[in-house]
């Protein structure tokens, strides 16, 4: 960490010590600020959550009332459901390939677009456009036109004499075409990075320029530390979103998770179990296993955060 930033941190920790003495209990005020959230939690969120937890121990079919079957759903999942295993595998690959790629790409573009170039607003908008399309039905058609057997990419490749497979419909590559789609829609992460970059006070850079720090030095010692809370947020949220990824695989594979279940994301399988196959109990059990998985992951990232996330509020 650069000396300027260290100096700032030192100043902060001094004020922090001062503050600790003056800390008073803020239960009342906090309750007011949290009131809407608490009402939402109690009235809208907890009930359905508890219901789904209960369903996970039943054979709930949606259409008729449920029957308690103990841990049967969980046992089946881990012993007698090859598609469950397949969907876990697909999802893990998706998460661990797409999230790092997307975040690195988003960060790189955000840095590029943060300053120092004309027509920034236009570029920013252009890069955000794919994200604007969201999960539109048009995307499915579009992706096939681009990456399909005789899509645009393969026609370009054919000009150079390369005969390429159908990237969307070949089970070897289909998952990666969805990874690409998710990376292509990096706009949301980019926006969050961009707004994070707004938080870097220019004085930090000014001071380091005086110090003679290079661009890379500035990036490593100033930008990254100040941006770290936002990076932390993006890592956690993108991972959660990727674990729950549904729409892209759904629209690209026409809801089937095919070919040969190569794009059968966990959430897609869960949805099919619940709504298409009328096994909502089983789907709920799957959902809670997913919560457990994501929870473990989130805990790990939270645990690691004290080593690399720097809060301006002094880490409190």
């Amino acid at each position: 960490m650069s000396t300027e930033l260290l100096a700032v941190k030192r100043r902060q920790s001094k004020t922090q010590r001062r503050r600790l003495g003056a800390r008073y209990n803020q239960n009342g005020v906090a309750l007011l600020f949290l009131a809407p959230w608490l009402i939402g939690l109690v009235c809208l969120t907890l009930g359905p959550m508890a219901a789904s937890l209960y369903y996970s121990f039943t054979d709930y079919s949606i259409l008729e009332s449920s029957r308690w079957i103990g841990a049967d759903n969980f046992v089946t999942m881990f012993t007698a459901d090859p598609l469950f295993t397949q969907s876990l595998k697909v999802t893990f690959i998706f998460v661990f390939v797409s999230v790092p790629l997307k975040l690195m790409f988003a960060l790189a573009v955000a840095l590029l677009l943060n300053k120092g170039i004309r027509g920034l607003g236009i570029y920013r908008t252009v890069y955000y456009i794919p994200t604007l399309l969201g999960g539109s039905v048009a995307i499915a058609m579009l992706w096939r036109k681009m990456l399909g057997g005789d899509g645009l990419l393969n026609q370009l490749l054919a000009m150079t004499g390369i005969h390429a497979p159908d990237w969307v419909s070949n089970p070897k590559y289909s998952l990666y075409s969805i990874v690409l789609l998710s990376v292509w829609q990096f706009g949301s992460s980019m926006i969050i990075f961009l707004s994070g970059l707004k938080q870097v006070p220019p004085e930090y850079y000014d001071a380091s320029s005086v110090d003679g720090a290079g661009k890379i030095g500035q990036f490593l010692h100033i930008t990254l530390p100040v941006l770290s809370p936002v990076i932390f947020f993006n890592v956690i949220m993108q991972t959660i979103t990727a674990f729950q990824s549904f729409t892209q695989a759904f629209i690209i594979s026409n809801g089937s998770g095919g070919p040969v279940n190569s794009t059968l994301m966990y959430s897609l399988y869960l949805y099919k179990k619940g709504f298409s196959f009328f096994q909502m109990g089983y789907a709920s059990a799957m959902a809670w296993i997913l919560v457990l998985l994501i929870g473990i992951f989130t805990l790990l990232v939270f645990g690691s955060s004290k080593y690399w996330v720097h809060y301006e509020d002094g880490g409190k």
């Binding site: 497979p165 159908d166 969307v168 070949n170 070919p259």
Partner: peptide, 10 residues
């Protein structure tokens, strides 16, 4: 071919 078949939708 399998690829074209897989690319077909309803």
């Amino acid at each position: 071919t399998p690829e074209i078949t897989a690319a077909m939708t309803n």
